[in-house]
Design a protein around this nucleic acid. Sequence first.
DNA 1: GATTTCACTAAACACTGTTCAGTATATTTG
DNA 2: CAAATATACTGAACAGTGTTTAGTGAAATC
Lengths: 209, 209
Amino acid sequence: MGITERKQREKEEMRERILNAAIDLFLREGYDKTSIRQIADAIEYSPATIYLYFKDKDELFFAIHHRGFEKLFAAMSEAAAEVNPLERLKVIGRVYLKFAIENPEFYDLMFVMRAPMAALKHRTNCGEADCDWQHGRRSYELLVNTIQECINQYLVRIPNAEEGAILAWSVVHGMATLLIRERFAMIELTDPEQKMEAVLDHLIRVMRI
Amino acid sequence: MGITERKQREKEEMRERILNAAIDLFLREGYDKTSIRQIADAIEYSPATIYLYFKDKDELFFAIHHRGFEKLFAAMSEAAAEVNPLERLKVIGRVYLKFAIENPEFYDLMFVMRAPMAALKHRTNCGEADCDWQHGRRSYELLVNTIQECINQYLVRIPNAEEGAILAWSVVHGMATLLIRERFAMIELTDPEQKMEAVLDHLIRVMRI
DNA sequence: GATTTCACTAAACACTGTTCAGTATATTTG
DNA sequence: CAAATATACTGAACAGTGTTTAGTGAAATC
């Protein structure tokens, strides 16, 4: 029967429509102002309808969070192309910071907000190929593998790839969150974006042998 | 007249009572569950009363945020006592991470949440001695001065104290937020607290000449 | 003792996420 | 084709949120 297939397709389309309206609102107005009623208004349906496609608001935002990781992973392909591992490490850091600066709402949702993590807790299908973190994990693996290559070629003063990856990730994530959550204001930092790049350069330089 | 003085004192006491109830609820139940009505219930007053002592919820949480910085600065005095600048840098990092791990709700409020920053925007009295960031700034200055001493004594491969401070801060802040906001789950990191210490050690080691 | 000042509150407003009984339409069955 | 069923959707409500305002009763001043 083609009817069940059409219904399946229509259900998927509706889910997509809700998601797109939610992303649009979220990127334009932020998390707090993206209410279920606002999304419902945007797609011209009742608020209750949204609950036929998403368990709750957390699950809806987890789906958006997923899109963000796809976007980040796509941006990372630029870095993956670089053959020199130390140079690649630099590019990974720059691409990561660029992503955070250009997509602050996405970054916040992916790495800071509590909402999507709450949805993740009520799940069990993680660890599979079609994992919730698929693109996030692959981006992280690119970082670990790059540092492992640097270690193998005696390019860095770091003995362990995992710990090196956490160090690098923490630096860029730390700066990204201090910027996005406006904590650079505390130290009255002028031109934070330029300084973030300088700090990243310092990190790579001191890591080098 | 003693009456105006007594009234002043009573007003201060009431403010303190609200603040203590709010801190108690906040540390026990978290931000979301600390509602104006809950605080009002705890001190056995009407919710409207709270608005006679605090402009809005953001200002109330900004006051709690202030307490957190006092606590952090007090913890930092342990680090300030160390005479060797490189050793002091290590201790600053350890104290900072320890504070974040032992007071995750405070840390979150101080360095991650948007609420207190919103209150700060509608203010102008910053930059004075009794500044909003007083203890936060002093903690940061301890870090900058320590790195400057390391530079002066040719102990680190960092040319600029400010950039060095941002590097160090970003590493510990990055790890702290990845832990508190549960993002280490993404990379299935085992024993994150131990690994955070190891990463901090790596940072200090690679920074050294 | 009358008047003013002031701390305080009940009630409302405009929101929020979420649930559920009920409806109207589409599909399947007899 | 008509009756029965399944599905998609909604109006209205529930319980909660931050915040404002008119009004009250007691304390301080005159």
